[in-house]
Design a protein around this nucleic acid. Structure first.
Lengths: 347, 347
DNA sequence: GCCACGAATGTGTACGTTCACAACCGTAGC
DNA sequence: GCTACGGTTGTGAACGTACACATTCGTGGC
């Protein structure tokens, strides 16, 4: 027995994990039958199947992903490409993603993007490709990311999360336009003549969508459409926008690009004695965990990030397993959550 | 030539990726030499080495992790076990983790924990084990997680992030005790007689540490040590604690368990006409992105989550590669960031 | 009662890499 | 000039699984 088993021989610790061959021996079948049970092949007699299952359980058998990946060339690993931004919300969909993925038997690996130039995207994709990922989820709602993704292998299924309806890749996300319209219509319905908007960074997909939703609601109501103020989704930019807005006469309603922007705005207003909602109504976007405890509690648009994660995964897995090639864009409907930062325009 | 290549035969799309054999042929060496270059084996002549490197570059060769994992039994994949909590900060160290891991040539996969009972931890660990992960990073600063982890294979290196100095596993994190002391001493130095504390959930490691730091600072100053108020790190619990605290006479300083708690507290105080910092000073913990824009901007304790992620990874990789077995607890020093929510006690 | 056919199961091989060991090369020692 | 040895390179095998194909078994049709 000159066999040289790396494990189990020297360490003594933990014997070599069981393989399908061990399972086969115990179940008195061939290893191929075990493989069939593993892959849910139809033509395995129920009794045989059960015997194999029992043997697996008895041995504590766990399939080797490495071996499977090696032979098939595809792993059941999904790669998540996330843009490394200060905004911690970026990773919020991750929980939903992991959970859904696991339920479908997939493993989730991450690769982050320090920037969205081609080289960086390329490097990240390469890193994931080394793992033979079966598909890619991209959380980088930036136009440039789309361009960079064209360098990815064309046979690799990709779904963008919260971004890109440009048609290059399929995507799942919240209907930003509808959300912005919800926010704006809410303010209009309260009697405000018009609504100012602090937008996000221009290269983000959501920015354009929210601007569009806001503008269309305004136009539909025949209201003035002021210039949107520049922002970058940080509280700081909201604060700075607030400094500008506090000098605007006749201002009664602001739709902030997101909750954080609204937070900064609230602070700027507070410092200048502008009361919310008595003087100015403010609406945010996201409905983060903190929004109900802003001062005042923020009226905002809720995005169900977990639902987005689930949707994205199911789209991706469809593409992987059924070869779906469509460029659908699944949208989750947002919901307006009215709190105390909005009130009727004064008569 | 009856070979049956799965790829490249039918699709026409993308020919079979190059292997070390292809590289070897191009570099005029044996595949084993290529393998040596790959593994940085010392005895490869520089010229040979370069020839191999050139061949790799020319072919666009990418090593197959699956094959490597299959034969070695270990992948260069690190598993991150994260507790799925509402608190989105939970994933903050992830970017730092991924980045450091990638620099060291590791891939990061995630598994989340819906709860910390043994079954759930077991399931998550199993899921990661199927990937033959080389090590585990656990972001679940809860006592119960420690207990559950004992069921993990004993030869699997594990490092806890932000938790557990219980001695069961090594850990990396911010020095919570020092941070709490910093916060408390700051308030004491401002002339406050004592400092109230809203603690986190009792099962969290940080809760105890912060309570200890706070108490020891108080005791060192000979100040009264009030009962800490229960909280769960949400803004909601801070708000509720604020309702209680607003009825406490003589209250001048509060150390909130974290920023979010402070946010809720701020709202409760504001609603009751208690001014911050004129009437009561408030300190938070975390220094999240929003803290500078709370109303008023929050004095808080900064935790460098990315540094923690880096530290954790380097500890873990040490354990993996050098077989380090120590149960060290690397601590990153926190930093007090003074803003406008704290002021001198009134004379 | 024989053949055909589908269901069920078994055998051979390949996937791309690393490990163990063998072979080769040149140089230093005597 | 021969031997020994370290540095360098090559050969054979194995890792655990899935696919292609071969084989066996059972059943129905004639």
């Amino acid at each position: 027995m000159g066999r040289s088993r790396k494990r189990g021989a020297d360490g003594g610790e933990g014997t070599r994990p069981p393989t399908i061959v061990d399972v086969a021996a115990r179940a008195q079948v061939s290893y191929q039958t075990v493989s069939r049970v593993l892959n849910e092949h139809p033509s395995v007699r129920p009794t045989t199947r059960q015997a194999v299952l029992d043997a697996m359980a008895g041995l504590g058998y766990r399939p080797s992903n490495a071996a499977r990946t090696l032979v098939t060339g595809r792993s059941r690993t999904l790669g998540v490409l996330a843009l490394d931004v200060a905004d911690s919300d970026g990773l919020t969909p991750l929980y939903g993603i992991e959970r859904s993925a696991r339920e479908l038997g997939y493993f989730v690996g991450i690769g982050n993007l320090t920037s969205v130039d081609r080289a960086s995207v390329r490097a990240a994709v390469d890193h994931l490709a080394e793992q033979s990922v079966a598909g890619l989820l991209v959380i980088a709602p930036i136009d440039a990311a789309d361009d960079a993704l064209v360098t990815a292998p064309s046979d690799l299924p990709i779904v963008a999360v919260e971004g890109s309806r440009s048609g290059v890749v399929a995507s799942a996300g919240v209907d930003q336009v509808a959300g912005a319209r919800l926010a704006t219509e809410h303010l209009l319905a309260l009697g405000h003549d018009t609504v100012f908007h602090i937008r996000g960074p221009s290269e983000w997909m959501q920015t354009q969508d929210r601007v569009n939703g806001w503008r269309s609601a305004l136009e539909a109501a025949g209201a003035d459409v002021p210039m949107p103020l520049a922002g970058d989704w940080t509280a700081k930019s909201g604060y700075e926008a607030g400094q500008v807005l506090s000098r605007v006469s006749g201002l009664t309603a602001v739709f902030a690009g997101n909750d954080q922007t609204a937070l900064g705005l609230l602070l700027a207003f507070s410092e200048r004695g502008i009361r919310v909602p008595e003087d100015v109504s403010v609406v945010g976007f996201d409905d983060g965990a903190d929004a109900p405890f802003y001062n005042p509690p923020l009226t905002t648009v809720r995005q169900d990030f977990r639902a987005v994660g689930r949707t994205a995964i199911s789209m991706l897995v469809n593409r992987i397993e059924d070869g779906a090639r469509d460029l659908d864009h699944d949208l989750v409907e947002p919901e307006l959550v009215v709190r105390q930062s909005t009130a009727s325009a004064r008569a």
